[in-house]
Design a protein around this nucleic acid. Structure first.
Length: 222
DNA sequence: CTCCCGATAT
DNA sequence: ATATCAGGAG
């Protein structure tokens, strides 16, 4: 009873269309250097990119290095990120993470997924984002959107985020591997949404294996 | 598995 | 009112 899966030709066609619609996909988190990217991704857990950007706009004006973050302090940081969910643990983690970068990594963001994962508040998904976006590695950062989209489409079905990541690793072909996770997250955010997927305007709805497609805009029929 | 946790869309 | 948002740690 293996889950239904797309074949190689369908997967290639799927990414060809997503790539055509958005040739140069980019993260929607705002940042000015690798350290700020790392902080922004840690803050983005269970929060919207728009909400994180609103909080980091002021923060990143003065804080561009781990040392500046440590100088700001946990309470100072909280004043900037109070509007983001989970802000207490995030503030604690960002300070501890910044201290670890100074103590063990010369204040630089390490280009190593296992080392990144050892930092406070940095799990596999955050490490994969940094490896891909800061260093150009072909990693697949499986967040809530990609987990949902990969399962719905039959692109990389899996019961855990790690299983989906391994599936993508195995099945996504060149030349799409570098930007695949960006296309999938944007697709999940704006079209293949959790609550009301807008399948009627999805560019790959003829390939997708999702059983509950909504092929007509509900707003057009009332 | 539970907890963390405010803003936003529906 | 409730589900959801670029998850991670205990």
């Amino acid at each position: 009873m293996a889950a239904r899966q797309l074949n190689r030709a369908q997967i290639f066609e799927l990414f060809s269309r997503l790539a055509e619609a958005n040739p140069a996909p980019r993260t929607e988190l705002d940042y000015g250097n690798d350290y700020q990217l790392l902080v922004a991704v840690v803050l983005s857990a269970q929060a919207t990119d728009a909400g994180v950007n609103k909080a980091t706009r002021g923060l990143f004006e003065t804080v561009k290095t781990p040392a500046q973050m440590v100088a700001l302090g946990e309470e100072g940081l909280k004043r900037h990120i109070r509007t983001i969910g989970l802000f207490n643990t995030k503030a604690k983690n960002v300070i501890a993470l910044s201290e670890a970068l100074i103590a063990n990594h010369d204040g630089e963001v390490p280009r190593d997924r296992d080392v990144l994962t050892s930092l406070p508040g940095v799990g596999r998904k955050t490490a994969n984002v940094v490896m891909n976006t800061a260093f150009g590695e072909e990693t697949f950062a499986v967040d809530t959107h990609i987990f949902r989209v990969a399962n719905r489409m039959g692109l990389a079905p899996g019961k855990t985020v790690l299983a989906v990541e391994k599936g993508l690793e195995k099945r996504v072909p060149q030349p799409f591997r570098r930007d695949a996770h960006h296309w999938l997250i944007l697709h999940g955010r704006y079209i293949c949404k959790a609550r009301r997927p807008e399948c009627w305007r999805c560019p790959v709805n003829d390939i997708c294996l999702y059983r509950d497609k909504i092929l007509v805009d509900p707003k057009l029929s009332k």
